[in-house]
Amino acid sequence: MTDMTAGSPAASWASHRFWRGLYNVLPALALSVGVVVVWEAVIRLFKVPTFVLPAPTAIVESLIANWGSLAFAAQATALEVLFGFVLSAVVGVLVALVIVRFERFGRALYPLIVLFQNVPKVALAPIFILWFGYGLAPKILLIVVIAFFPVAIDMLAGLQSVEPSFVSLMRSVGASKSKIMLRVRIPHSLPHLMAGLKVAITFSVIGAIVGEFAGANQGLGYVIQFASTQLDTPLIFAALIVVSVLGLAFYYIVEFAERWLVPWAPKFDPIHSAG
């Protein structure tokens, strides 16, 4: 492999990075390919009916055959996720700011929010459909009630994580509470906020699909529900793949925003975190 890094300096650096990247994803890639191969083999060997569990090849066939309608559905779902996520972020941040800034009101509000978090949100979907019909509004509302909580909690933790000596320092030059909030607390909370947003974006995708299950005439959740009434299991799986890709894309957009907005945040490495 090292032979391939030869060439002009820029190219050798790029290819070096490329091979390093490939090396890093190789285990995950190999495992995935292995699972797919075993899956295909089991279906063929035991002649599992397609409506029970389709073979990977059947799923890909369905994906290609239904590409137009899947893309259209993905567009509808993406729009719900986008609006719902942005609104969740705004609501979550506002809730955290209000709780910290108006302490007494915060003391009243916080237990209610925690209590509300324990209501199964999925059960609220039919109520929202009842109130707002089959359109965009009930999905966005459902996403907000599901996804604002991690944003609010992480932002709250971030605002409170400022070292007391920093607050003392600001007070020693006569800075007001609002100034301390604006210049120290809010910037300090940004890495925490980004962590909350990463949870919220995955919740948002779940919220959109659940909202579409409860009642919709478009979107990937609607496609999955429709396909299940037709026993078109390959289409269900094809739609699931599209949902996953969509969710992954949204997640990486947020992660990219994190690197750009808070470059000082400690890097998160899920594998080596204990070391």
């Binding site: 000596s165 920093f166 003392s168 320092l169 120290v184 910037p187 470059p263 000082w264």
Partner: peptide, 10 residues
């Protein structure tokens, strides 16, 4: 001046 430097990381 405190024991921790408390610098803004950004």
């Amino acid at each position: 001046v405190f024991q921790e430097a408390t610098l803004l990381p950004w």
